[in-house]
Design a protein around this nucleic acid. Structure first.
Lengths: 138, 138
DNA sequence: ATGTATGCTACAGCTTATGTAGCGACACTG
DNA sequence: CAGTGTCGCTACATAAGCTGTAGCATACAT
């Protein structure tokens, strides 16, 4: 998989508009999560893998290549780190940390009220599957 | 594919932290693009599909279900629209429009300077493949 | 009866992600 | 020097997600 470059059509975006190129990149599995986890300190590949809930090393490697190629991440002596550009992006996504907790309460209220029956149905299915398979998971 | 709910482990996130649930959702193909395109006006399924570069109706339908289930989108008489919650999220991603144009210049400078030879290599490969296959694409 | 628009679903095939195993290099210890 | 641990990945079989196209039932206009 290539990484998106503004001005050039990429998978998921035919127009090459910068915002669509950015969304193509951030819309890839764990791209946002990696930027988020690197905001604290630089770390080694395996440390980052651990912070990212032990995702597949294949995926992590692919994603790191893409994020490096788009100037958001670099390899330093300490390990992988956000670049100056990457920290600009992080500044934009940082408020999502706070907002996501508010969003969680909207979802809790919605579920408790039973407004969206399909959510409850899906969650119950998920809970059954995961409880059977994983027991207690943090 | 289920949609992420804070507090519950979802695919790509074992911890259920709200921020990881949000990133799981936004890290899905075209999730950000759909929120972006619905920020202007509500629209019908086919109008939205058209605004989203004619993505697969299967993908659009799947993504709409997930965004509805997570309270970001609703169906109104005018068609699909952002909810109040969805507009809160849009307020967080709107600055990315401006930033992505800056990011594009970083990438242009980087490529022009030849700092990252692998980028140029990949882009040339992409250009060859896409020019051969697609001719002139807007 | 015909044409257009809508909101999708079905499907074969392709691309991406998953989870595990394992590699070569390097550092450290006894 | 042998053994162990860590590192930064790669290889691979399999599963999941996405693509592009065709087409459905319904509603509406002519």
């Amino acid at each position: 998989m290539s990484f998106p470059v503004p001005g050039k059509p990429v998978r998921g975006s035919k127009t090459g508009k910068p915002i669509m190129a950015l969304f193509d990149l951030l819309g890839r599995t764990w791209a946002l999560g990696i930027v988020w986890n690197l905001s604290k300190t630089a770390c080694t590949f395996r440390e980052l893998q651990s912070r990212c809930e032990n995702i597949s090393p294949t995926l992590l490697n692919t994603r790191l290549k893409e994020l490096k190629g788009t100037l958001l991440i670099e390899k330093t002596l300490q390990g992988y780190a956000l670049t100056v550009v990457g920290r600009e992006l992080f500044a934009l996504i940082e408020p999502m940390g706070q907002w996501s907790m508010q969003w969680a309460t909207y979802l809790d209220n919605d579920i408790d009220d039973g407004i969206k029956s399909d959510i409850t149905h899906v969650i119950h299915d998920n809970n059954l599957a995961k409880n059977t398979e994983e027991g207690n998971n943090e």
